[in-house]
Nucleic acid binder design. Structure first.
Lengths: 192, 192, 192, 192
DNA sequence: TATGAATGAGTGTTCATTCAT
DNA sequence: GATGAATGAACACTCATTCAT
């Protein structure tokens, strides 16, 4: 019985994850989820308190991981961003393990969280990263905007990789490429 | 009367544009628009068949311009993308005039089109651009994905600029910077 | 097993009584009861056919006692209500033993029975009592209404006492005071 | 058109007042109201923001009047409650005009407000009145309880009158009788 | 042209009750 | 006897759209 319950619970999580990924939180109704799982709408509430909790069940560990990653990265370890080789390696490993462990959760909070507590997560993240990039750029009036674009691009690139690569090795290779691309690009705009 | 009618029609477009930009298509109700314009909800339907048509009126010319830009770019004119200086200049001019002419329409279809026929425009666009970038990259299994990322980043960067810069000159300068950043980055991944 | 069963049955009655008294019939859910008793919701239906029957189990003997009291009081025994000292004593004893025996059941049917067959019990009761009081009043057009008010007040007063006094002696004393008040008015209770 | 709207609005208020009076706030659904008025449920929200606002529209002026009455009565004017003849007259007039003006609103907030902001109004009121009565009673351990009962009876008596008398003169006469009864007891109303 | 009244389908959520195990 | 999964009807509320005036 417990098995059955767990199995259905798992199926609800699975199907709602699909729907949330495809349509976003707002545009996915409890009825849609119930239909996909082939149970009554009311029964969903046997497994999850409400729609928001269902979403958070799918995303909280990803959000937690992301928060920790940011906290550690801001605690000074990665202070010399673009020029240290060490930076790339450490950052890469930190990010990689999070990406691999929390792939869909991250996609949900970064892309499909409208209507939830993660609604403004992506811009917040981007702003944090931009803060770190800006001082590296030549001092001009557009430095902040360009840093924002780069940060946004970095985040966007990671999302693309998550969407298109499954196996750890592949993700790792692509992340390397992405960072190459970004660091070379950033050099073009650096303080000489 | 025609003048009055046109003027009201224009005000509806203006206010709904604001709302759609701020809140997105889905989360903007006809009631909100009617309130902003200070007319009745029903009267909106005298000017626009329904909510979707109102949105399309705001976005179709931008979408058309975008389509044409892509068509022309694919017709062979910009075939040698990254190595010709000419590419940068032409592309820049084409894009710039579109951006300046259709700023808000482009933002709407690229960012706030959930629930409309433009729901999947951005990924489609990105795929088209990626197609053009891919052959320039070193032949590896990730070439397509990297091209997609670059394309996505390019699009994302442009959107950022549109959101943060108003005057043509500023937009032009930022676009230059963005392209510098991207071409230098791309070089890192090019066929040697 | 029978003992166990009876014991559980008793606990259900106990906890649901608490909840019904605090929250009323309508606003007490079977889930709340199950949680308080620490059994499953479904198991409640092994002991009681449905929510209504559970409520009736808690209240039927009180309702029965009340009915009998009224029947006997109407059978002529207490015909000369206000002037016979005997009336006060007899009534007091009859009522007192019912109150003490069926305290919570009475509170439930008089105060928390919305949604059950006792929904209209209190007004019915009041009407019955009023019938007996009316002939004692001076013949005027408002006699019936005044009798109803007195009856309602009497019932209300008893409910108050039930809620605020536990020990038989206390209840008895308060009931005496209440009847004094009703027969002689506030003056009876004033500081001299 | 404005007339139609006002007329329907009035009918909604009328029918919902009936339902709220009969069944209480909680147990009256928007669907019931819509059915009685013979309109769609959605249309109710054209006239009232939500169920609570509809209820408050029916009750707020009564609640306001009651609040003012209490404030004025507490401001010291009626300090010598039971012994001054003046008290009875003034109180009677104040209460009478409120009762006549806000009959159904008062019934709703005193009897049928479960689930609204008036849920605890009656016990609060009763406590306020009891505070004034208690010092007049002989000092015994049951004084507070008896004062509460009297206060509750007074309120209950007024409610009975409201339910059973329509014309001002009748209400006035009954209120007089009620106060007599409370001050002098049943004897005051007996056949001589 | 303009209004705003009206509808009906849809939203998330609750809950008494049933039933297979 | 006991569980808890499951249902279905009900709840308050929203909103794009239609339509009589």
């Amino acid at each position: 019985m417990q098995v059955l319950k767990d199995e259905l619970r798992h199926r609800i999580l699975l199907e709602s994850e699909h729907l949330f990924l495809q349509r976003g939180y707002d545009r996915t109704s409890m009825q849609m989820i119930a239909d996909k799982v082939n149970i009554s709408k009311g029964n969903l509430y046997h497994y999850f308190k409400n729609k928001e909790e269902l979403f958070y069940e799918l995303t909280d560990s990803a959000a937690e991981g992301l928060k920790n990653l940011i906290l550690r990265s801001r605690s000074g370890r990665f202070s010399n961003i673009a020029d240290s080789r060490e930076f790339q390696l450490l950052l890469q490993e930190e990010i990689l393990s999070l990406l691999l462990a929390e792939k869909y959760g991250l996609l949900l909070i970064m892309e499909q969280g409208k209507g939830t507590r993660y609604e403004h997560l992506r811009p917040t993240m981007v702003a944090l990263i931009a803060e770190q990039i800006e001082p590296l750029l030549a001092d001009e009036e557009n430095a902040l905007l360009l840093a924002q674009i780069m940060a946004d691009n970095l985040v966007g690139g990671i999302i693309q990789i998550l969407k298109n690569r499954v196996r750890p090795r592949e993700v790792r290779v692509c992340m390397n490429r992405l960072l190459d691309y970004h660091t070379k690009g950033i050099h073009a705009l650096r303080v000489e």
